[in-house]
Amino acid sequence: MRALSAGLRTLVWLAVLAAIGFALYAFARSRPQDVPWTPLDLSQPVGMFTRGKIGDLRGDFAGCRALLDRAGVRYTALPVRDAAGQCGYDDAVRLRGGGARSIAYAPADVGVTCRVATALALWEWQVVQPAAQARFGSEVDRIEHFGSYNCRRMYGRDSGAFSEHATANALDIAAFVLADGRRISVVGDWTAGSGRGDADKAAFLREVRDGACSVFSTVLSPDYNAAHRDHFHLDQASRGTGGACR
């Protein structure tokens, strides 16, 4: 009787383990973006491990460019820029037309590290465009920015750590222009005014800021400090498993 009970317990545990295995398999099939071992795919929605997978592309320029190619992102690989000190880059691309869905950048043809380009593509397609359609019934036609590569230290100081801009590993986003001509700027619309549509603009900016935190290592907004009152700072600094989103 005791042996039979032990056998039944074994069968029950095997059945439980099988059920868990089938559940995990079904989850992996239905939401591969939320499974840590599935390869990064820019056609999939942003998942729990997407930011970490983008971070894993550090040092794998060929693999990163292959991801952009498969997603149809239009770019040109930039030659190595070997600047003095801690500036320069060896894994940058120049975006052409903004990506597969033709969001333009102003100034045009922005150059960033491949990991930043990968995150931008996901952010544009999975966060920015859906948010614009939901709130304004119009797609984003243009993203205005303050630039990427700039050989300088953080906040332009004479000493201290170098900025991620010094390696083209960051981009500062200033505004979004919709296809119908409406413009939403960080400096003008972060705090909702009393005019018609102001609340939607402020909510949109917070939605795209929060969405950026899932694909960028660092996201800094006006909530961080006065130095970011007019832009979002987006970068792919190496931060292990944690990111900075403020």
Rank of each mutant, 00 (worst) to 15 (best):
M1Y: 06
W13T: 13
A15L: 15
V16F: 08
A19P: 04
I20P: 00
I20V: 12
F22D: 11
F22M: 11
A23S: 14
A28S: 15
T38I: 12
L40Q: 02
M48N: 03
F49H: 10
G52V: 01
G55L: 01
G59F: 02
A62S: 15
A66D: 14
A71Y: 09
A71I: 07
V73Y: 07
L78A: 15
P79M: 10
G85W: 12
Q86A: 14
R94P: 04
R94G: 13
L95S: 11
G98A: 05
G98S: 08
Y105P: 04
D109C: 05
D109M: 08
R115S: 07
L120D: 02
Q126K: 12
V128W: 05
A134V: 00
G156D: 00
R157Q: 10
R157A: 07
S159D: 08
G160I: 05
F162K: 11
A168W: 01
D172Q: 03
I173F: 01
I173P: 00
I173C: 02
I173N: 01
A179L: 08
G181C: 10
G181I: 11
I184V: 13
S185R: 12
G193E: 06
S194R: 14
K201D: 13
V208T: 07
D210R: 04
A212Y: 00
S217C: 02
L220V: 01
Y224A: 06
N225V: 08
R229P: 00
R229I: 07
G240Y: 05
T241R: 15
G242T: 09
